[in-house]
Write a protein that binds this DNA or RNA. Structure first.
Lengths: 219, 219
DNA sequence: TTTAATCTTCATCACATCTTCATACCAACG
DNA sequence: CGTTGGTATGAAGATGTGATGAAGATTAAA
């Protein structure tokens, strides 16, 4: 996306000569449609565009099926706040216009190098954030609200270890007063309902969502 | 690396407050030494520094054992050639000075997010600090907490010899009272679980981590 | 109000992990 | 060749933590 047609033409041509397939959207809505219907590796988002702005598209991407794609924000705004906003929303780069086409291309390729080497660890388990549902191969699991919230937090940051305290903060309001061990109880119930054992205990630390099984100890 | 001491101080403090371990080099040679002797996740390279410049350090990194780390080039040079040069040499970002510390931090974190997500498939032994995991060729080893912490400390500074006392301070709370030899026991158990004999005993002194390439694979 | 679902606490148990210790081993040295 | 100082190792006991089921409390639904 790029709000000035002529510059956009140049950039697109540049990228196509370099061997990339390029899709162009003229507003945020169209961009979202591309996210849904094309298998993108990278998105270049102009912030100031009609319908939905770049930040909104960015957030849409990160909640989408293709959330791992590289996102490069493009803007005439040189202020710190806008940049911090972009990075906080997990943009991968922020480029201030006007930009030399060659530098844009180099930054694209640099990001692609990192993006391409990622693997998607997700398999059958999906979280429907809006619907408060966890789906396994499309079939919803019957979770209580606490169980769902617990799974959601763990699932969103796979392999990150959350202490019981952190989980309590994430799941309940921060004014919760009660025993740490409430987490144990919910974990127990959640584990029973999950089709595979993906919640691992880190003794003395907390719990994490994990995909791979660990090596067995050699004898 | 940063050629102006005062600015560097501010940045380092900023990063440490944000929770990162920071090593500072004042010239290219020292930077290369850090690449060899610390297990870095990210390098911020000033281009104009003594002994070896930032580009030379970048190339050194990409040919090194830690070639996958994120590299962020920092320079007062605003010209296209220098930037293209950096990206061609597979830098991951190029920031023009002066830069707001918060933006530098955000760009660091953004890059780290991409670097870290590559951990899981990288060859060899990798430590996932956040996830309390040690990965061998992407597959987690089943370590206890003490074993993990032990490996983490040793791995963080390869070739540095740690006394039992130092290791106890790093692994347990400082109020630990007990036999030194607890370390021996954990080392023994840890060695059994590691695919390489990478923990070497320095008789009369302590233990050190040796980089795996120097060793034979266990049968 | 009654009923059902969900949350929360608690006591008990099982097991992972830690720690010590005794013995075996090894290298250096006289 | 034996002694010394140090480490490796396996076993066994001690400790601590999490798992679990039951039961009461709370909340929501009927």
């Amino acid at each position: 996306m790029e709000d000035e047609p002529i510059i956009r033409e140049v950039l697109v041509e540049y990228m196509e000569i370099a061997g990339y397939s390029v899709f162009v959207a003229t507003d945020g809505e169209e961009a979202m449609r591309l996210v849904d219907h094309e298998n993108l590796d990278l998105a270049i988002l102009d912030i100031m565009v009609p319908k939905y702005n770049g930040f909104e598209v960015l957030n849409y991407i990160r909640l989408s099926h293709n959330k791992h794609i590289g996102v490069l924000m493009l803007s005439a705004l040189d202020d710190v706040n806008s940049q911090v906003h972009a990075f906080n929303d997990t943009a991968d780069d922020y480029i201030i216009k006007p930009v030399s086409p060659i530098i844009l291309l180099k930054r694209m390729e640099t990001l692609l190098r990192r993006v391409k080497s990622q693997i998607s660890w997700q398999e059958g388990l999906k979280i429907d954030h809006e619907g408060y549902r966890a789906l396994y191969n499309g079939i919803p699991l019957k979770l209580t609200l606490s169980e769902f919230l617990l799974l959601q937090v763990l699932y969103q940051s796979p392999h990150r270890v959350f202490s019981r305290e952190q989980l309590i903060l994430n799941i309940f309001n921060e004014d919760y007063i009660g025993n740490d061990r409430i987490i144990d109880a919910h974990i127990k119930n959640l584990r029973k309902k999950l089709p595979f054992n993906c919640i691992k205990t880190i003794v003395g630390v907390g719990y994490q969502f994990q995909k791979e099984e660990a090596y067995e100890v050699k004898k």
